[in-house]
Nucleic acid binder design. Structure first.
Length: 255
DNA sequence: AACTTGCGCAACCGCCAGTCG
DNA sequence: GCGACTGGCGGTTGCGCAAGT
């Protein structure tokens, strides 16, 4: 037990990574693949601890990472997910495959947290209920509060319970209850399992397959390969569809 | 131009859970 | 069952830079 001793060893380099170190790490991982971080420092000759190597890879060097310039779409999604999940950055990051948990965490702490608090304080001053803290326009979102399992209980902190997620998905699979401008064709959606272990969540559908829904013109089958989460997003995460739907419904592009 | 302040972000720290011998 | 080890996560720190004075 106890924490890892790897970073306490004498001779371990700390601080910013140099381009040379990055090249060494990337070339090693390209050859051997990520994993077995313990052996990376010894095999590469990097004077870094395994943790540092892993973090550098996952937060910076990993292919498919999108950096900076969060779009309103992404902002809205982060705010929404944070209100539902709390500070489960890894879980939130799984909804945005191109973003790292560290990036999202930083962005929340430096930008969004203040924005949300400001919006909430304005909403409270006006005596109005604030839709999950980032859009108090009840006219625009009047249909949302009756659709999504979201409520405000006197504070900006939204309980990060499984009930919220389950309810959200349950309602999400019932298009008939929601008013929308686009024709909704939700078919054969068979979510049957939601796990919440150690902050990670996954949604499993029958045979790891489901038909897409709202944002697409025509339903199509998508096979979900969990391994694709590692190296970015050439496949659409099942939850990105939820994301798209949520944003269409709850956030719009006014954020 | 020099100094101060605030911000953004990469990296570190400390803890936890899972695995293995 | 126990302890060592590892990977993963969230919180925090500290450096570099830009903006303000």
């Amino acid at each position: 037990m106890g924490r890892s001793q790897c970073c306490d060893k004498v001779g371990i380099k700390k601080g910013p990574w140099t381009p040379e170190e990055d090249i060494i790490l990337v070339s090693y991982i390209q050859k051997h693949g990520p994993g077995n971080w313990r052996s990376v420092p010894t095999k590469t000759g990097l004077m870094r601890c395994s943790k540092s190597c892993r973090l550098r890879w996952t937060n910076y060097l990993r292919p498919g990472i999108k950096r900076g310039n969060f779009t309103p779409h992404e902002e809205g999604l982060i705010v929404h997910l944070q209100s539902m999940l709390g500070n489960k950055w890894a879980a939130i990051a799984s909804y945005l495959p191109q973003r790292t948990d560290n990036d999202i965490k930083n962005y929340w702490n430096t930008h969004l947290k203040k924005k949300v608090e400001k919006k909430n304080s304005v909403g409270n001053m006006l005596g109005a209920s604030v839709f999950i803290g980032y859009d108090s326009d009840q006219t625009r979102n009047s249909h949302v509060s009756s659709t999504l399992p979201i409520s405000i209980h006197g504070s900006s902190t939204y309980a990060s319970s499984m009930e919220n997620i389950s309810g959200l998905l349950e309602r999400w699979t019932r298009p008939s209850q929601k008013k929308t401008d686009h024709p909704v064709q939700i078919q054969d959606l068979k979510y049957h399992s939601i796990k919440a272990d150690g902050g990670s969540r996954e949604i499993l559908s029958d045979q790891q397959e489901f038909r897409t829904l709202v944002p697409f013109e025509e339903p199509r089958s998508v096979a979900w390969d969990e391994s694709s989460t590692l190296c970015g997003a050439h496949q659409l995460h099942p939850l990105s569809m939820l994301e798209n739907w949520l944003l269409d419904e709850a956030v719009g592009m006014s954020w």
